[in-house]
Write a protein that binds this DNA or RNA. Structure first.
Length: 484
RNA sequence: GGCCCGGUGGUCAAGCGGUUAAGACACCGCCCUUUCACGGCGGUUUCACGAGUUCGAAUCUCGUCCGGGUCACCA
């Protein structure tokens, strides 16, 4: 039984853009913590001053809030292990590196950039030659006193291998000859990403380091640092990558050319935040029971690390669309109206409409709210259409009987006392019975005349209701004229 | 190129030495129906390849091939 609380952290760089891959990492970090009753920490890694973007931290807060990944500690809400912004922690790293130097586990390196560059061959291969690893102490002292720029590097073992355990991938062994004497402190005094990460994770008592598996091969470097300090090694959880498919069908790491890959872009395209969460949860993780629809709360109840898969997953918009449709269908009519109203207003800029009729014809069919305006555009203006639209084999309509049907429908509808769905419905069904034709024979021509398109959301009655009496009759007469 | 990690239908995937190899998306067909959609029913399509271990391999081992990742004073 574990007696320490599980703590995970999401440590994004504020770039102003939340990639879905990052978001999924955050989600899994949250789920691992929450499924075990632990804490989820937000830490901002902003040591790269050059890449700083205005308002970027706000994007991170907004995204996490929209999807419901509420952190327990972070820059905005504080916590026991702050500060939670790396730039506010910068003074803290150097002493740890100096401690390692004192203990003989790290050293000052005075090599110039130029010298380093010359070490690398044309193909980019070749690492640091450990030139400064064994400089005599007096020489180091002299160089330091002269103010020579330096970095601090860790002494990596020259022989043997390093093995670490990953909760997803199992034991992984890497030869130490693959490891370069890594830089801990840069010449500007800032820590490198790897070093700051280890220090911060330890200081913040992070128990599970969860990240994309692009970090798999650099994990031995982390381990060697923990070992150098004599710190407890956290549980590593490396996640399979999310891939994208480009126009030619080639698969590679998900990026812009695969379409929208930012959370904000997907939302703008019409995907619900809960859809996105549900979908990405399943990219690389599979629940024990055979089901797919999960709210965030349900995910925390069902998540477990052993369900994480090792192989990369392709981000599939077809499946995303299906999920979004499922979420839309599950909404209450009120919630649907609220979400859909901005799109309704593109078609009906003003006035009241029978919104419930719109809900009834749209909710079962749309996959994204952004589809609404195009679906409804025929309401705004009757499109030009050919008389052939009236021919439908299944409904048994043709150029001859369609005219008769329209004529009969116009006659009945003109006399309707109330222009609403039920009365339109009853009168037209009644008319079909009286004429002794199947419903479709009457309703097909009416719907075509009312809409001017062959495929419409809703049927003839809904369309007539929404159009109103005057416009409906006008359109039916236009249809009739086409047929005579 | 070295090293690391993967490879079950077009996609997400279950599977942990014996299964008719689940399920979902997509696709096709049928039903429902006032078109399309929703819903219901059914169908096509998979263990990368080759050896080995075993009575028996998608599951274990090795090799090959393919895909990806990584080799910074970036994070």
């Amino acid at each position: 039984m574990e007696n320490t609380t599980v703590r995970t952290r999401f440590a994004p760089s504020p770039t102003g853009f939340m990639h879905v891959g990052n978001l999924r990492t955050a989600l899994y970090e949250y789920l691992i913590a929450k499924s075990m009753g632990g804490s989820f920490v937000l830490r901002i890694e902003d040591t790269d001053q050059e890449r700083k973007v205005e308002g970027a931290v706000q994007v991170i807060y907004n995204t996490l809030q929209q999807v419901g990944l509420i952190h327990d500690e972070g820059p905005d809400i504080g916590g026991e292990y702050g500060p939670y912004v790396q730039s506010e922690r910068k003074g803290l790293y150097l002493p740890y590196a100096e401690q390692l130097v004192k203990e003989g586990k790290a050293y000052y390196c005075f090599c110039s950039k130029e010298r380093l560059d010359s070490l690398h061959s044309e193909d980019g291969l070749g690492g640091y030659d450990r030139h400064c690893r064994d400089l005599p102490e007096e020489e180091v002292k002299a160089l330091l006193e002269k103010g020579t720029p330096y970095v601090i590097r860790q002494k990596m073992p020259i022989e043997g291998s390093t093995t670490f355990h990953d909760a997803v991938y199992g034991d992984i062994t890497i030869e130490n000859t693959e490891l370069e004497d890594q830089i801990l402190i840069k010449s500007d005094g800032y820590p490198t990403y790897n070093f700051a990460n280890v220090i911060d994770d330890h200081l913040m008592r992070i128990t599970h380091v969860v990240r994309g598996c692009e970090y798999l091969t650099s994990t031995p470097k982390y381990n060697l640092l923990y070992q150098a300090f004599g710190w407890e090694i956290p549980t590593y959880v490396h996640l399979p990558l999310i891939m994208g498919k480009d126009a030619e069908g080639n698969v590679s790491k998900l990026s812009k050319r695969h379409g929208s890959t930012g959370f904000a872009d997907l939302v703008k395209e019409g995907y619900l935040p809960e859809t996105i969460v549900n979908y990405i949860a399943l990219l690389g993780w599979c629940p024990k029971e055979n089901r797919e629809l999960f709210t965030l709360k349900e995910l925390t109840e069902h998540f477990s690390i052993d369900g994480i898969s090792k192989s990369p997953a392709v981000f599939d918009y077809d499946k995303l669309n299906w999920f979004n449709g499922e979420y839309i269908r599950a909404m209450s009519p009120e919630a649907f109206i609220e979400k859909a109203m901005p799109y309704f207003r593109e078609v009906f800029p003003e006035g009241e409409k029978d919104w419930n009729v719109l809900v009834s014809i749209l909710q079962p069919r749309i996959t994204k709210f952004t589809e609404i305006p195009a679906l409804l555009s025929f309401f705004k203006e009757l499109p030009e259409y050919p008389a052939e639209f009236f021919i439908n084999k299944k409904s048994k309509t043709n150029l001859e009987n369609s005219g008769a049907m329209l004529e009969a429908a116009i006659e009945v509808l003109e006399k309707l006392p109330q222009w609403e769905l039920d009365s339109i419905h009853d009168s037209l069904i009644g008319l079909a019975q009286k004429l002794e034709v199947k419903n479709g024979t009457l309703l097909w021509p009416v719907r075509i005349a009312a809409a001017g398109v062959q495929v419409t959301p809703g049927g003839a009655m809904e369309i007539l209701t929404l159009l109103g009496r005057e416009e409906s009759l006008r359109r039916l007469r236009i249809g009739l004229a086409k047929l005579s």
